Lab assay of single mutants.
Amino acid sequence: MPSETPQAEVGPTGCPHRSGPHSAKGSLEKGSPEDKEAKEPLWIRPDAPSRCTWQLGRPASESPHHHTAPAKSPKILPDILKKIGDTPMVRINKIGKKFGLKCELLAKCEFFNAGGSVKDRISLRMIEDAERDGTLKPGDTIIEPTSGNTGIGLALAAAVRGYRCIIVMPEKMSSEKVDVLRALGAEIVRTPTNARFDSPESHVGVAWRLKNEIPNSHILDQYRNASNPLAHYDTTADEILQQCDGKLDMLVASVGTGGTITGIARKLKEKCPGCRIIGVDPEGSILAEPEELNQTEQTTYEVEGIGYDFIPTVLDRTVVDKWFKSNDEEAFTFARMLIAQEGLLCGGSAGSTVAVAVKAAQELQEGQRCVVILPDSVRNYMTKFLSDRWMLQKGFLKEEDLTEKKPWWWHLRVQELGLSAPLTVLPTITCGHTIEILREKGFDQAPVVDEAGVILGMVTLGNMLSSLLAGKVQPSDQVGKVIYKQFKQIRLTDTLGRLSHILEMDHFALVV
């Protein structure tokens, strides 16, 4: 994948999101292997301009796509893939009243899908469409860049269908997702969380590099694949309309690839034109409109599966009536509230959605109805927002919020430890010299600072030695090549209790 991002070429006709291997024109390309080798690009942008032909009021008969309808489940399912879809609609009884809503608040519980998330729908649909058009064949390999849930859905379907599955996901995604993927037989590649989507090191860039190296491999490409919004247009939206008897006044959905909100909203605009569509985008993402909503100094966020630093091709923002931004604290607070007060075992993005819903639905009156999409299960986040310690460490809970008995030293300040200034190293000294210094002084790690004293990161003896043994660096290389740029900081005025929580999850903390 090139470091400079080429513009994806656009073909003359058809839909841009065809499933299957992508040609340089962004659509299915038939021909000899030699032709494909000559024409197939190194990668295709996940934010390529959409060429979708959908228009409100256009006859369904003019759609270029294969459409399906929700099917009634048999008493005995032939395999677990038949437990994807037909998820329950559940009334939220307490939270709406707590925040003064007059309307009825309903939750579409997508964590009841077989793999635990709304992404099971698009995973199965992308595979079925690729099999139907002859792209996927027995023994082929599926590769997908994902925040985890699409990966789980694909790995689940691949396990049943017999495909090899490789999932490329950023490091910030939970260990629970990784464990589930491994249990399903998927191979996992992790990428830096802070890598831009168009960087060769991003999950998108690495996935395309693997595709170019592995024979008979395919990126189904949830960011561009029409099967993504079509899955929701054909099934999720129809289920909502049936469950609500066609009567709903507002739908609120958090947005990642945009397939969920695009597919549902398009069908609702056709069948229930008075329904307002509300999009939820986390602070630090750029999906919301108008652009002024996205202006923030924050560039990272903890909530998973929603928000991006690019506009995915499948996201149709014209069908969203209003956007709201959400933050991590309210997302996790509301997710825990949904679990504790409503018994809905949902993930953090569901918290984002409901946090926005109780604001947006203030305009609705008694007798009206708001539906929220709860995308995934708490299963993926047992060591994250479900953990009091994690919430404390991230600053989303305060010590006084917890009532468990603490040891005698818990409320003492870090400054009472009488710490001395640490050994520091410059980023320009060599790895070999740094190892000598650390061994001589008896230290395992040291902060790396520039000549102005600005902290650049941390270097550890173990990481340097393993990097040297693996051949990633040489003793003569500058130590700046092996620094940890993500590390926890703590102030002298913070409590030892807070430091204790940090050290339970990290090997060190830097006192500043």
Rank of each mutant, 00 (worst) to 15 (best):
R18E: 12
S50G: 06
R121S: 00
V180T: 09
C15S: 07
D198S: 09
E40H: 11
L251K: 04
L105N: 01
E34Q: 12
L124K: 11
Q242H: 11
I167Y: 08
P74R: 08
M173G: 03
A60T: 12
V206A: 08
A71K: 11
R51E: 08
I188K: 04
I122A: 05
L184I: 10
R224N: 09
D140G: 07
L156R: 01
H65N: 04
P12L: 04
K75L: 13
G263Y: 00
P145F: 00
R45G: 11
L106G: 09
D198H: 08
A60P: 10
W54F: 08
Q243E: 10
T235V: 06
L184M: 08
V118Q: 01
H66M: 11
F99K: 09
E144Q: 06
A231M: 09
G20R: 11
G274A: 13
D140T: 07
N113I: 02
I152Y: 01
G263T: 06
F197M: 06
L156H: 01
E187L: 04
K267N: 11
A207E: 01
L220G: 03
W43A: 11
S61W: 10
A48R: 11
R209H: 05
C275L: 07
P78K: 09
P21S: 14
D238L: 04
A265P: 05
A265G: 13
H67R: 15
E131R: 03
C244N: 00
E110P: 01
I127M: 07
L268N: 01
A186S: 03
C103H: 04
T257N: 07
E128Q: 11
E9N: 13
S27R: 07
V160A: 10
A24Y: 09
P200D: 09
E29P: 12
M173D: 08
S147L: 00
D245H: 10
S123L: 05
G256F: 00
G258Y: 01
E104C: 12
D179C: 12
T150A: 03
P229I: 04
E176W: 00
D47V: 05
L81E: 12
S19Q: 09
Q222V: 04
R121F: 02
K271C: 12
I142Q: 01
L105T: 06
L230H: 04
I142F: 08
S27A: 13
D35N: 15
K25Q: 15
T146S: 03
E62H: 05
T260H: 15
A24H: 12
L42A: 10
K75M: 15
N93F: 03
V90N: 00
D133W: 14
D79C: 08
P41R: 05
C109V: 11
H22E: 15
S61I: 03
G139D: 09
F112V: 02
K108W: 00
G26W: 09
A265Y: 01
R51C: 03
L220A: 05
G31A: 11
E176P: 00
K72I: 11
K75I: 06
S199G: 05
R58D: 12
L106M: 14
T135M: 12
D133I: 05
I166V: 15
N149F: 02
P49C: 09
P49A: 10
G14D: 13
G26F: 10
K30Y: 10
P46I: 07
G258L: 00
E131T: 04
I44D: 11
K75G: 14
M89D: 01
W43F: 15
G246E: 04
E104M: 04
E270S: 05
I264M: 14
T53E: 09
D179N: 05
L268P: 01
I127W: 06
Q7A: 11
T53F: 08
V206R: 03
M126P: 04
V255I: 04
V168I: 07
A157P: 07
N216M: 02
D238P: 11
N228G: 00
D179R: 03
I76P: 10
K108R: 03
M126T: 06
A226T: 09
P33E: 14
T236Q: 02
I84C: 09
M169Y: 02
A60H: 10
Q7D: 10
M126D: 06
R121I: 01
